[in-house]
């Protein structure tokens, strides 16, 4: 079963990202060596985001993220593990779990 580990970061952590890089590199390496890593990415900070929607056939484009919160979605890992318990165990090892928070969500199976 596949799960997304959504990594939330505080403003401070986003501003000091390079400080956390070694820990994240080790974390993704551990996921890889355990054979559970499916994918993932780190995102640029939310001020680089552009949000758009179509309202009454009008395009509306705005600067910034859809949800403007203090804590930001900083990236995600996709993992393939037997169950939620195992996914939560991996989520607890993510550096963000002790700095801010991580959210674990099951992925819908591929329709194919």
């Amino acid at each position: 079963m596949q799960y997304a580990i959504l990594v939330y970061e505080t403003e401070y952590d986003i501003a000091n990202r390079e400080q956390h890089m070694p820990a994240y590199m080790a974390y993704s390496q551990a996921l890889g060596e355990a054979g559970v890593m499916v994918g993932g990415a780190a995102l640029h900070p939310s001020h680089t985001a552009t949000t758009l929607r179509l309202q009454n056939d009008q395009r509306q484009v705005q600067d910034g993220p859809y949800a403007d919160t203090k804590e930001q979605l900083g990236g995600f890992f996709l993992i393939d593990v037997p169950d939620l318990d195992t996914a939560l165990n991996w989520a607890a090892r993510c550096p963000a779990a002790s700095n801010c928070a991580v959210e674990v969500r099951p992925l819908l199976p591929n329709p194919a």
Partner: peptide
């Protein structure tokens, strides 16, 4: 081996120690 240990650490203090 340190990389593996760091990546598997849950405790932030132990992670910092190993780093």
């Amino acid at each position: 081996a340190y990389q593996r240990a760091i990546g598997l650490s849950e405790d932030a203090a132990i992670r910092a120690f190993l780093l």
